[in-house]
Design a binder for these strands. Structure first.
Lengths: 337, 337
DNA sequence: TTGAAAGCGCTAACAT
DNA sequence: ATGTTAGCGCTTTCAA
């Protein structure tokens, strides 16, 4: 015989299997006397529960299903760190599914996860298909949608407002007296587009964003791509005086390209980044950026989920807007006035 | 009734459950006739297998156990990307355990994983406890140890030689005529220490590394910490002429600190980084670094594992040294001579 | 090539 | 507070 089973523990402790099960899962329902005996046997035999058997027998497993649109985007690394930090030693397994930014693939993943009776779902954004939405509604477990805020929530949500964040950048540029605004972005998912739209809309009155000043690419974002995109943008619109970069990689690339061209940053060219990774603020000059609560989103999401698992409907704040913060550093001019 | 089970598919197709099971797992053992009927029913009912039931009934699950010492270290993000890329659509789930750089915690994780009858184990390094080693040996599934190369392998391994990598940096510094060599590092795990020792040993003959020129910290590595550590090192040994940085964050920080002090890099101070993230080569000046095959390690590890699952003992190269490469850029002088 | 029966290790439901 | 029974959905073993 290999590893000991519940029955082995039961025999060793001289009790029934169900008592061992209870002693382990709901110790308060077992008398101290038997609980002690069970615990001793568990320790003696080195018993570890078999999650597959327990998943099969009960209505929920110890799997928390997580669906991310990308694993190569560092934003989700940060979210993951928050998730694992929040998870701590809780007896749940995070199972990651990668939807590759496809709602159909996501639907497929949800279908697979459903079979595992996950203890909870954490999914990215609000772009689910109708089917997905229905499956999540029917899953009878907590569901958190992360990264974004919105109305059509399945159950709970944590994120921030991307439209507002884009608008904040536009307003900042205007406050600093920039007027010929540009935008560079890579791999434009829904949320990036919201940022861009918020940016364009907020700029529209005072400094409409010219199409020639928008440079994007379907490629993954990287520092090298940031250089290229700025180059493209300047080739088409050399008099651009400020660029909103859709993330830190691109912003660092743009800054390096600007330096190579001996541009005066921030006077001749302002740069504002998005997300604010640690290295952005250590560049020379330090990069102005919208700081986003990536790690906090992960941590909060898992906390909500664990709380709901413990005690359904116990979470009061079911929709958290964690906000963002503009870090005004040295790649944008001082506020005019 | 919720989601359809194997029995439902069997009934719908007018065959027995076991035939459906076979049609799905070993289609070559079922006649084309029945196979087609089964497939049609599977599609019609939208059947998705229940992994818990299959894990319980069979001797292996579809879980691949992965033990990483850290999730906050970007090195492992890269490894993870390689793992997921190599996994592709293979029907296995990666289950990540975080050992927090503790061999005991790792042992505990292995014990838990064993209960799940994983299809394979991927563990980091060679620092397992004796118990862990024994459990892995007895697990009757492929095991790959990643990141390092070494002799006392459980089963298979993929990595590179950290001692040799450290030595290569020392030799490079000497070739470029640096003589007062320093080292900065954060969160020193076994492999970092091997790098440091390789570095010190290789420098010993021509330019022994003075203790005052070693600055380390138990904190997580970051750009800010790189600045601080260089500052500390220079406070103690202002005439240091080259620094080996244990990773890219630190190197970028060191470069920024050097720039703040208006040091002439590479002439007055040489900087060599480790890992070579994409941004390192886009800094100004581009950073000389040892490029490590992090992503390739992940990809290769999963490939080995999948090959062994399909066909035990089919993998020929069971111990892969993926090597490293010194990228000589502009933070170290041209080679003297 | 196909099927029937048994059982993987646990928990839900129902006693006591 | 504790135990008995049945069954989760699949695969193994054995038989035809």
């Amino acid at each position: 015989m290999g590893t000991p089973s519940l029955a082995d523990v039961a025999e060793h402790a001289g009790v029934s299997a169900i008592t061992v099960s209870r002693a382990l899962r709901t110790p308060e329902k077992v008398s101290k006397h038997l609980r002690d005996r069970v615990e001793a046997s568990v320790a003696k035999l080195g018993y570890v529960p078999n999650p597959a058997a327990s998943a099969l027998a009960s209505t929920v497993s110890t799997t928390i299903a997580l669906i991310l649109p990308s694993l190569t985007n560092t934003v989700f690394d940060d979210v993951l760190h928050g998730l694992y930090e929040g998870l701590g030693d809780a007896p749940y397994f995070l199972q990651i599914g990668n939807s590759h930014y496809s709602a159909l693939k996501e639907e497929e993943l949800i279908r697979q996860f459903i079979r595992q009776k996950p203890a909870a779902f954490i999914v990215t954004g609000f772009g689910q298909t109708e089917q997905s939405h229905r499956m999540l509604k029917n899953a009878r477990c907590p569901v958190v949608q992360i990264m974004d805020v919105g109305r059509e929530t399945v159950d709970m949500s944590v994120g921030f407002d991307h439209v507002a964040a884009g608008a904040a950048v536009a307003r900042h540029f205007l406050d600093c007296d920039y007027r010929r605004l540009g935008y560079i972005g890579a791999r434009l998912d829904v949320r990036s587009q919201q940022r861009m739209q918020g940016f364009i809309a907020a700029a529209a009155g005072d400094a409409p964003v010219d199409d020639r000043r928008i440079a994007t690419s379907p490629a993954d974002s990287s520092v090298g791509l940031g250089r290229q995109l700025l180059e493209q943008l300047l080739a088409r619109a050399p008099d651009t005086d400020a660029v909103f970069c859709n993330n830190d990689d691109l912003a660092v690339g743009a800054l390096m390209e600007a330096r190579r061209r001996k541009f005066d940053v921030p006077n001749a060219l302002g740069i504002c980044s998005f997300h604010d990774n640690e290295f952005a603020r250590h560049m020379i000059p330090p990069i102005t950026a919208i700081a986003t609560p990536r790690k906090e989103i992960g941590k909060r999401a898992i906390e909500m989920v664990l709380a709901e698992i413990r005690e359904p409907n116990s979470v009061r704040e079911r929709h958290c807007d964690l906000g963002f913060e503009l870090m005004h550093r040295e790649t944008t001019r001082p506020v005019a006035g």
